[in-house]
Design a protein around this nucleic acid. Structure first.
Lengths: 210, 210
DNA sequence: ACCTGAACACCGTTCAAGT
DNA sequence: ACCTGAACACCGTTCAAGT
């Protein structure tokens, strides 16, 4: 039953005409408020006060919608434009880029999982990948090394933050917290550092051998 | 395989009494033959010639079943017992362990995704994590470093192989192959190497600073 | 351009009851 | 110990038709 004057939370004004952007933003709100498993096409339609079938005018399918959310989540963090390229600054820039990507993912509930699954399907993770490539590309590596290192780092980031967010809501569900509290950040930094040091070392050993 | 009279494709003998092991193995076969999205409780029940509700006597829910599959997939690769610990061999052993985990994941369709999602939920990835810990633990790192490095490496491996398998069936679906064919192995090795070199470098810089 | 109405072909899970 | 039968409460997607 629908009440005549519902001042329901999670509901767009009252209008029956929506744009693709409305749909995406409402989906993001459901995601953030209730998590990925609760983000269904039917629930999204209800939040927009619309029939489920109406969503398929805006997006061809759910996967495409999720890719769109993925892009929005991963792009929320502004790219601070580092103008000057000084030798060795790729390490700092890469670390900063990794941190800002983590922050962007953490800004939405289940953000990492959304981006991760879209990325696995070859969709929606082009922004973070591009940024990591740009950061690592400041070093003097060949194109293939940049590509591989970026992908590897992105895999670590997505896996780590997914794990982190899983444990977050596990804890918030009151499952008698494990030993670690915000161990997340330093463990993350450690992982990123490992990558960066590995890459630096790799380059160094190559130029020594030559 | 395991069944005594197996002739039917995707169907256990004819008996109506099954063990937990039957259920898991049949599920693995559906997974390998048709992929994760097709592995539904109802389809699994049909393959076992049983009502869907019967499965819930063996497993409390689908998630638990997937965790069991995850364990089986990740444990298929034998642990070759390296008896002697010689200095610096952690690098070789870790690389070998990573390779063998990748092989295990590749042995089943969607294997990486199954393990990955169970791992994200804190289930079913204890075997690979234990093995990686044991390998890295051969180096002279403190316990926390070993833990973090293992988790980081595992995240990379799961992400990488998931991606690899996704593209495998994408290609096999005839979507006009991209430029790379079995670029997978060397990109994987590169990622693992980055980690190992990073860890070695990290340890070296620490002992120099002290 | 954007949505309704109604249907299709599915899901995971529960539970009393059977053997 | 292992399964049936029947139901509950959902899914994503399609498509003719409406405005």
């Amino acid at each position: 039953m629908t009440s005549p004057h519902g001042s329901d939370p999670e509901q767009q004004p009252r209008q029956a005409r929506h744009t693709r952007d409305d749909v995406a933003e409402t989906a993001l709100r459901i995601l953030d408020d209730h998590g990925l498993p609760e983000l269904t096409m039917r629930r999204l339609a209800a939040a927009l006060d619309v029939q489920p079938s109406a969503l398929y005018w805006h997006f061809p399918n759910k996967q495409t919608l999720l890719a769109e959310l993925s892009d929005r989540i991963a792009s929320r963090g502004r790219a601070l434009p580092f103008a000057p390229v000084t030798p060795g600054d790729w390490m700092i820039v890469t670390a900063a880029e990794a941190q800002s990507l983590r922050d962007a993912l953490l800004a939405y509930r289940d953000g990492a999982e959304v981006v991760s699954s879209s990325f696995a399907l070859g969709l929606g993770a082009s922004v973070p990948l591009t940024r990591l490539r740009a950061a690592i590309g400041r070093g003097e590596f060949d194109a293939e090394t940049v590509s591989r290192a970026s992908a590897a780092l992105l895999h670590f980031i997505l896996g780590h933050v997914s794990h982190e967010q899983q444990r977050l809501q596990y804890d918030s569900l009151g499952v008698a917290a494990g030993p670690e509290s915000d161990e997340g950040t330093s463990a993350f930094e450690f992982g990123v550092l490992l990558f960066i040091e590995g890459l630096a070392q790799h380059a160094a050993s190559r130029s020594t051998t030559r």
